[in-house]
Simulated assay, not measured.
Amino acid sequence: VAEAAKRCAQYYMNNRWLGGTLTNWRTVSGSIARLRELEGLLESGGEGRVKKELLNLQREKDKLELSLGGIKDMGGIPDIMFVIDTNKEAIAILEARKLNIPIIAILDTNSDPDGITYPVPGNDDAARAIQTYCDLIADAVLDGLAAGQSASGVDLGAAINPEEPMLREASAPVAAEAAPAGTEGVAAELEAAAEPAAAEETPAVADEAAQEATSEANDAVETEKAAV
């Protein structure tokens, strides 16, 4: 029960139900405040107290933790209650009915369905059955929380990176190997582009040399004519 409740961040009582837990919440809140006080005192080491006094405080804290540890963070009465054994938790059911709190309960063949808002026929004695009920309730709570966030406009996948870590590790060497291949491709393209340019420059250089030779020959002919 405790594991399933913690998994879906809900409150629980897996020990004897204290009379007035719901109907006398103010008194229960005082006991929860005492539990928090003892937790802080023992965590700080209990300076100035003898060993016997610390032992008594630890026993008091353990007793309160056993009864109220699952609801010490609950700020008020719950909106709904899930009960496994209606016969054993008859007082809890009476308090919930008095406060008009909806009740989901597992009803065995010896259970009374009166006052149960959402009865669920099932075995409330077998450990595996109880584990199944708790897991189903926890999953339903998580689904409800997710649906509520989605309805309020919260994008549940916005902060999630769709790329798995294994995929990132596998793609890193591929990217590293692809870089040299890309560089060689660029170099080949540059060489291919340079060859036509060189081919175009060669005729231009030859034309300039021919023009210079023709000009020199004309100058020589004119010089000979002048000498004659």
Rank of each mutant, 00 (worst) to 15 (best):
N218R: 14
A175V: 08
P102G: 03
P119A: 00
T21G: 03
G70F: 03
T21S: 09
A126G: 05
D124C: 02
A170H: 11
R36P: 03
L136F: 06
L99F: 05
A187L: 15
D79K: 03
A92G: 05
S111R: 00
D124Q: 05
E195N: 09
A176M: 10
Y133E: 02
K88L: 12
N100C: 02
E216Y: 00
L66C: 02
A151E: 13
D85W: 01
D79Y: 09
E89S: 12
E47P: 01
M13H: 08
N56W: 07
D114F: 12
S171T: 15
E177C: 01
G30S: 10
A194H: 11
T109P: 02
D139N: 14
E191N: 07
R34E: 11
G182L: 13
V83F: 05
A5L: 08
D139G: 00
E191I: 10
L136M: 14
T214F: 04
R26T: 15
V174M: 10
R168V: 15
E195G: 07
P180N: 06
V141K: 09
S152E: 05
A217Y: 13
P165K: 01
D112W: 05
I84W: 04
T27F: 06
E95Q: 04
I93D: 03
G20K: 06
T86K: 01
A193Q: 14
G157F: 07
A194K: 13
A172W: 04
R16I: 07
K61R: 15
A127N: 09
S150E: 14
I93A: 02
Y12F: 15
D73G: 03
K61W: 08
G115K: 02
Q131H: 06
A192E: 13
G75W: 15
R168G: 10
T109N: 11
A193M: 04
N123S: 10
